[in-house]
Design a protein around this nucleic acid. Sequence first.
DNA 1: ATTACGCTTAGCTATTGAGCTAAGTATTTT
DNA 2: AAAATACTTAGCTCAATAGCTAAGCGTAAT
Lengths: 121, 121
Amino acid sequence: MENYSSELDGLFQALADPTRRAVLGRLGHGSASISDLAEPFDMALPSFMKHVRFLEESGLIRTRKQGRVRTCTLERARFAMLENWLSEQRAIWEARTDRLEQLVLAKQEFLRHEQKRETDR
Amino acid sequence: MENYSSELDGLFQALADPTRRAVLGRLGHGSASISDLAEPFDMALPSFMKHVRFLEESGLIRTRKQGRVRTCTLERARFAMLENWLSEQRAIWEARTDRLEQLVLAKQEFLRHEQKRETDR
DNA sequence: ATTACGCTTAGCTATTGAGCTAAGTATTTT
DNA sequence: AAAATACTTAGCTCAATAGCTAAGCGTAAT
């Protein structure tokens, strides 16, 4: 029962490692097998596999085994969750700006009334 | 001597915690003191402080102490690093699409030649 | 039928992260 | 001057992460 927040946890955590980001970059060019993916890294295979599993659990990749080869594929849709979060943050900033604007507008309104009273006097 | 990659590590790591994301959300509305920020969380202050320090080290917030109060401010510019990384990934995908397009175009070209030979015959 | 390949499992170590309590410091407030 | 406020430091626990080696297992090649 993963909720939105804990999915974000996993997502960001998955991205917080240079090996995993490199794998994502590689998969951006197209699917690949575990050993193809592992080849550039100076790391024991079981260690590398952990990264792959982490990526899969975060939803950023899918994997499928045929025969003795496991093929990994980028799950591009998952990146939308990141964009979403960023949008939410920006929305908050915008909201703030709006309120600032309202303050400024309210002040202008106030000043207009002041001026009006000047002329009324 | 932080490089681009380890800065991304810190950035994503900072975002991989719900408390820290909540703090960023709160700061999106405007700066706040440590105790104001901590108030909604059922957590000892020193524990909360660790999150604040983590956020500061990741570059996502700045803090300044005046008297006995430390005020935290969102460093919006830092979010651009996220957007950048996302763009890079998308750029990779696009590059792939381009190559696919080239394949398709090459195939169309081939078929055109085939047809031409038909008519030539 | 063997051997080689491509993972996979099990289990160990060291480091880091998230939380805690207790006690300390520096500023305000009273 | 004393008390209250707002952090801050020190140091502990527990769980999770990143790495390793050694050995196992199913599939493919010879």
